[in-house]
Nucleic acid binder design. Structure first.
Lengths: 152, 152
DNA sequence: TCTGGGGCTTCCCATCATGGGAAGGTCAAG
DNA sequence: CTTGACCTTCCCATGATGGGAAGCCCCAGA
């Protein structure tokens, strides 16, 4: 089948299939006499594998490793497990920090009166708490200033 | 203080500070007579806010809105509140999707023996699609939303 | 047999956030 | 005054992905 069919069947865009081939993630596809890429079910299979892994947040680099494990008869499940667990740790950590920020943001919203008066108390607190400039931008003398040599 | 100090104090690299200024995320810094950018504590504070938001996966566009929340004091508090609440909803939604993903991966990892034998359900699962629900036919759609920059 | 439209090819460009590095100006300590 | 760390701008690269142009190919319909 042509690349378009392979794309719709695998869920990987034709552009991406060519890209994956170009960077060596997948081997070069067979070509028809006129130069069209030609795919079979095993290629589509592999592309689906890649699509799934991308969906789960694996980077291309990680997928390279997964593909190696997948294609290798001697693959060790421990390697696969370690990869997945690393991703999970990564995600859990990120989720935790996102929850922190969501909570903060929610507090901020709840502290707002939500009327037509300007300024939320928390916003003011944030500003005045830290906004006290100390250094002054070194005023005059030396008219030298600033050259913008030739930029666009 | 100079950009280097601001960078180390905020956790945003000097490169990124200039970039943020260039794209208008932060206002142009004051300049010394010789052209050096000059920062005060409020700028550092703002940069730290940005760093945290970036770390949590907010896009620059989203951070623009978040910054308006606490930087723009002339806003009606109702607007501030609505904006904050919208962000919170977005955040909770993303958290939920990330949790789904983490759960799926964790299940897969737990089902993996993690030994020298080659059978690991993760690989089979990846082969046969359906990691966590129906998969949409021709729509690649890289699990919407959160960015996964800089991982393990 | 011709023709039109859609699919295929490669190539270049854009994105977003980030970093590397070059070429040159500035500053502060020795 | 020299030196080395720091700053300035500008250009280029990355990783994944998409957009689009120029040109070739294939098949169905007239």
């Amino acid at each position: 089948m042509n690349i378009g069919d392979a794309a719709t069947r695998s869920g990987v865009s034709a552009k991406m299939i060519r890209y994956y081939e170009q960077i060596g993630l997948i081997p070069p596809a067979a070509r028809t006499a006129s130069g069209y890429r030609s795919y079979g079910t095993s290629e589509v299979h592999m592309l689906r594998f890649i699509a799934r892994a991308r969906d789960l947040g694996f980077s291309i680099r990680e997928i390279t490793g997964l593909l190696d494990l997948w294609r290798n008869k001697d693959r060790r499940s421990a390697d696969v497990k370690a990869l997945a667990q690393a991703r999970v740790r990564d995600l859990r950590d990120k989720i935790e920090r996102m929850q922190d920020m969501a909570d903060t943001l929610e507090d901020l919203a709840n502290a707002c009166a939500g009327n037509e008066r300007p300024s939320c108390p928390i916003l003011q607190r944030l500003e005045t708490a830290e906004a006290s400039g100390e250094d002054s931008p070194a005023r005059p003398s030396r008219s030298g200033g600033f050259k913008d040599r030739g930029g666009s």
